[in-house]
Amino acid sequence: MDIKYYIFLSIALFVIGIVGVLTRRNAIIIFMCIELMLNSVNLLLVAFSKMHHLANAATSATAGSEGQLFVFFIMVVAAAEVSVGLAIIVMLFRNTHSVDVNFLNRLKH
């Protein structure tokens, strides 16, 4: 399979995530869009790891495995991030009774 298709697929998913972040106001949806973007990158990393493996399998049996380990660590970080992020959203909701990010314009002041 040509690596190009994976690249385009990942770009498409990533841009969908960006558009989601840009157009939605619900903090939870925005958060999910960020997860979507992370996953698109994960997919690309795995595809690249396999590409490298195909190219270098002759010299090293484990060639390309770093890419998949990266994905593993990204998932670790994402899980930690989600736990903290959701805690923040819960806190926000408790204080404002809303999850609308447009209320969060304190950066202006």
Binding site: Y6, S49, L54, S65
Partner: peptide
């Protein structure tokens, strides 16, 4: 970009 293949269904690093 240049055409590079990725392997599907085979290879056991995963």
């Amino acid at each position: 970009t240049e055409t590079r293949m990725t392997e599907l269904g085979s290879g056991n690093i995963g």
